[in-house]
Amino acid sequence: MITLKINGFEVQVERGATILQAAEKVGIKIPMFCYDERFKPHGSCRICVVEVEGARSLMTACCIPAADGMVVQTESEVVVEARKEILDLILANHPLDCLTCEQAGRCTLQDLCYQYDIEETSYEGARKSYEKDVSNEFYTADQTKCILCGKCVYMCSQVQNTDALCFVDRGFETHIGTPFEQGIAESTCVSCGNCVSVCPVGALMPKRREKYRYWEVEKVQTTCAYCGVGCQMELLVKDNRIVEVLPVKGHCNEGLLCVKGRFSFDFVNHRDRLKKPLIRKNGELEEATWDEAYDLIVSKINEIKESDGPDAISAFSSARGLTEDNYLMTKMMRAVVGTNNVDHCARL
């Protein structure tokens, strides 16, 4: 164990823990753009710099290991000055279009500028300008808004392991692109959207089906309804409609989703959903009430039980239904209809 002091608080951490982890242990928050515990630490954005007594320069809390006897200040004057300067520099190269930016409310840059009272940049001069890549079906990449934290690149190369994104060019011209700059649609991208989920600003945004603000939505954590991995995700709901899906960190999916879980939720809101029971009359399916439908089913069950016995009734349960749905389905067949003729598509 290592003992260090952060803002006057003594903290004990395991050897190898970073300053950030030590700070979290005592509830001290350190701002960050580029950090994600799933990547190798890369220290790009520098917003998490802290002052370490005796060190020549400021240290990035996210990747510098805590050391015994270390004395750290996370909000000293020099630290705050540096952070303000960094925010000023980022803002000097970032459009101030928060009024219409869809990331508003979920934007780290917005939050930190608020925290450190940066209203606008003090610099004039060149700003980057790139054409928005809209070639992907589900998200757009607007390099003009990118702050080059690199999270999307590291997410794609180290966590999603698809290697579709990379840094292109050097210096002020640096931007995120795909190998040979062919555009996202032509890259190895599998549209998982995991890069979009980690973008701290509005550079990578889902293509929205409808307008919503992040502060308007209700978030409900649930389990993905596609394959058997059981990814945990949040449904973002506005006006009784799912408007976006975001992955949840931790759990078996470690904050990842695939194209289906992340972007293919339209079926829930879809106009073709069945809204009323249907009964076949004169060869055609026609709308009916629940009572009519139930009565028909119940009378049919009773009739067949009577004539051919319960084993003449069979049911297919569903691998897509709830555990509870399946339980009551099997209970209905076994306890009430009286047959073990229940199966589901586990094999298909």
Binding site: S44, G150, F167, G171, F172, T174
Partner: peptide, 15 residues
């Protein structure tokens, strides 16, 4: 020649 990775160097030298 700045590699473009970290903010102060990439943005700051330009300014």
């Amino acid at each position: 020649e700045s590699c473009g990775k970290c903010t102060p160097c990439r943005e700051g030298i330009k300014r």
